[in-house]
Design a binder for these strands. Structure first.
Lengths: 135, 135
DNA sequence: ATAGCTGCAAATGGTTTGCTTCGTT
DNA sequence: AACGAAGCAAACCATTTGCAGCTAT
């Protein structure tokens, strides 16, 4: 396919910046709220369209996350996540060992595995602390 | 909490049976459609409420799956999934090796990991075949 | 001029919920 | 009578889409 015109508009830049400067993985709604502070008339549709576009172009990565909203990640390489079941925090982890698991999965199913994503769930250090204080 | 009354009504039995006899992982919508063949007046709300109830009681397991509908699984033990990116098939796998990965994740994040779930994605044998035929 | 982007609003799809009625105990 | 369950419809929430108008090229 031919290279189609692509404009890096102020709105798009702002959306990209929010994802890249975020202290954590934001939902589209959160990104919408933050961008709206600078562009009060921005629409939800624009945010979603832009996020998908940026993901397609490999500038960000999106993670449809469990039963809740999709999160957007500035990291574009393969990696896994850890989720705190108490406060909901979601952080990145690198678990290279899991690559070996692909072979097991291929042998078990006959699939040709191209990718994998692990979500670990547990309790974050902060919530562990809070738990100890309650005892 | 006190044991509260719980009735295993015909509708509930039918929903449980559909999950347990399913040839694959069904969505709530699919379960609704199937149960409706026997109970034409059953409501979506009943299906969802029942599925959550059965999951809470450990009779089935639910997997909020990516950006699409939650799937319901007769297996109630910890296991992983393989997803075909071509036809959408979703099958179970057991990858015990991944348990080791938890330690890596704990060390990296300080989290207390209690669980994990891996979704492998790739191409199922059938779609591999189809692909070969096209060449 | 026109291809591409925005804003708006309506539509979609999965899921949840309030409420009334009904069946069991 | 009292409790739990079912059915129905409306509500919800995240996300998508059609479209008219605007803006850079």
């Amino acid at each position: 396919m031919l290279e189609t015109g692509f404009r890096l508009t102020p709105q798009r830049l702002a959306i990209l910046a929010e994802v890249q400067n975020a202290e954590r993985h934001l939902t589209a709604g959160e990104i919408f709220e933050r961008v709206r502070r600078k562009y009060p008339t921005i629409a939800y549709g624009t945010v979603y369209r832009t996020l998908h576009l940026l993901a397609e172009r490999g500038l960000i990565q999106e993670f449809p996350f469990g039963d809740h909203a999709t999160r957007f990640d500035r990291r574009t390489d393969r990696h896994d996540h850890v989720h705190c079941v108490v406060c909901g925090e979601l952080v990145d982890v690198d678990v290279p060992i899991a690559i070996l698991a692909r072979q097991v999965a291929e042998e078990q199913t006959g699939y040709e595995i191209h990718d994998h994503q692990t979500v670990f769930s547990g309790i974050c250090p902060t919530c562990q602390e809070a738990g100890h204080r309650l005892r």
